[in-house]
Simulated scan of single mutants.
Amino acid sequence: MEIFNHNANVNFLGMRKVSIGIAVLLMLVSIALLAVRGLDYGLDFTGGISAEISYQQPVAVADVREALAKAGMEHAVVQSLGGTKEVSVRMQPTAAMLDQGKVNLDKVSDVVSRALKAARPDAQLKSRSSVSSQVGDELRSDGTVAAIFVILGIGLYLWVRFERRFAIAALATEVHDVLVTLGVLAITGREFDLTVLASVLAVIGYSINDKVVVFDRIRELFRLARKAEPVEVLNRSINSTLSRTIITSLFTAITMAALYFIGGAVVQGFAITMLIGILVGTLSSIFVASPILLWLGVSKQDLMPQTKENPELARRP
Rank of each mutant, 00 (worst) to 15 (best):
M1V: 13
H6I: 14
A8Q: 09
V10C: 06
G14W: 14
I22R: 11
I31N: 05
R37G: 13
G42L: 08
L43P: 05
I49N: 00
I49T: 01
S50V: 05
A51E: 01
E52H: 01
Q56C: 10
P58V: 14
P58T: 06
A62G: 04
A67T: 04
L81W: 02
G82F: 15
A95K: 14
V103E: 10
D106P: 13
D106R: 08
K117I: 06
A119F: 11
D122P: 06
A123Y: 09
A123V: 12
L125I: 08
L125W: 11
S129T: 11
S130R: 04
V131A: 01
V131D: 01
S132E: 10
S141G: 05
D142E: 10
V145L: 12
F149L: 13
V150H: 01
Y157D: 02
L158F: 03
A169R: 00
V178S: 00
L182P: 00
D193G: 10
D193W: 05
A198P: 05
A202F: 02
Y206N: 14
Y206S: 06
S207F: 01
N209R: 10
N209V: 06
I218C: 13
L224S: 13
P230F: 08
V231F: 09
L242N: 04
I246R: 05
S249K: 09
L250R: 05
L250D: 09
L250N: 09
F251T: 15
T252Y: 02
A258P: 07
Q268V: 03
F270K: 04
T273V: 03
M274D: 09
M274G: 08
T282F: 02
L283C: 15
L283V: 15
S285N: 12
F287K: 09
W295N: 12
W295L: 07
L296N: 02
E309T: 13
E309D: 15
P317L: 08
